[in-house]
Amino acid sequence: MGFVVGINIAISLRLTGFAASIPLAPLRKFYPLHWWCVGLIVLSGIGLLLAYPAKALTNPVFYVKLLALTMALLISRYFQNFLAQADTAATHNRLIVKLAFLTFLLWIITITGGRFLAYTNSVLLASRFF
């Protein structure tokens, strides 16, 4: 998760105009590692979900986290395509700047949602329903 959020933060910072002298196109080289780490968090997430399915599936915070994570990853994919054709002048693309700020918000929701999951569950085991 550290690599996924970290790489996204670094790229989004640049896309908002921070450190504008960093060339845009080479930043896409960090995406392969990013997607490998996404694979790891999906696998570990499925493992945690299988271990305590009722705990997550009965908690609305889980769905908020999942939605924020999915949106953040879709924007990452969009940024990756954008960087493949980008030059420095493209920083002024308003949509990209707005999406970069939205990315910060989505990662904050994902992280906060993840931490709050441990404190907001009302059901621990599915056996409660049988």
């Binding site: 550290g2 690599f3 970290g6 996204n8 933060i9 670094a10 910072l13 990662w107 992280i111």
Partner: peptide
């Protein structure tokens, strides 16, 4: 969040 800021910048 602090950790991600650190890891995202120093890590990159």
């Amino acid at each position: 969040i602090g950790l991600c800021l650190l890891f995202g910048t120093v890590g990159v």
